[in-house]
């Protein structure tokens, strides 16, 4: 195994270098930002063309620890207002995924108005093994304030009890799982055409 360590380190470094050029920081106004500068509001994945919401530890719309129930306001599917987030007046309120999407679209966050929940495949595309279980499985240099927690995807199915379940991607374990839409989980929004 020890003989493989240099190879693994080389592979990890090569992967890191690839990811370094894969992402592009954007300001809240949508301007490109060099990788060594900050702060930034969104991240462009140059491989997929998708724009991802960046999180912050400051209270507000993009708070990292805010949780949401899964709810599609257009179809009324899922469970409304069962999460806990913070509104623009810094009040803690119950909320769901449609609230965050609506707010990001209203703000034209990073000059985008097509914010949506990512598919599980899109979320899984962000997974990166950082080699340390204390880190979330993501390029934290571009996606800080990511928790080792599950994040909602847009993937939906009906369960045996005629209720709805949505798929989550866990950025601690890297696994994906199905959970009732009434549960509360974190969200990272994405903008761009669905794949």
């Amino acid at each position: 195994m020890q003989r493989l360590l240099p190879l693994l380190a080389w592979l990890a470094c090569t992967a890191a270098a690839a990811d370094e050029s894969r992402y592009q920081k954007l300001t809240a106004q949508g301007a490109a930002q060099p990788p060594h500068l900050g702060p930034w509001a969104c991240i462009v994945d140059k491989q997929t063309g998708l724009v991802w919401e960046n999180k912050t530890d400051n209270e507000g719309t993009h708070l990292d620890t805010a949780t949401y129930s899964w709810f599609d306001a257009a179809s009324g599917t899922g469970k409304a207002k069962s999460g806990s987030c913070i509104n623009t007046r810094l009040q803690v309120i119950p909320c769901d995924s449609s609230d965050l999407i609506a707010q990001a679209r209203r703000e034209r966050w990073c000059q985008r108005s097509d914010w949506r929940l990512p598919s599980a495949a899109e979320l899984q595309g962000l997974l990166l093994d950082t080699g340390f279980i204390g880190n979330p499985r993501i390029a934290t240099g571009f996606f800080p304030h990511t928790g080792r927690f599950p994040y909602w995807s847009a993937d939906l199915r009906q369960n045996a009890r005629n209720g709805y379940e949505a798929r989550l991607v866990h950025f601690g374990s890297g696994q994906s799982l199905w959970l009732s839409t009434s549960a509360a989980a974190r969200i990272r929004l994405v903008a761009g055409p669905s794949r």
Binding site: A9, C13, T130, G131, F132
Partner: peptide
Amino acid sequence: GSPYPVIPGDTRYTAGYKSDPL
């Protein structure tokens, strides 16, 4: 520990030094 991989975008690499999981 052993040197950890480089994390894309991180501004400071600390090799094998890390705080324990939080």
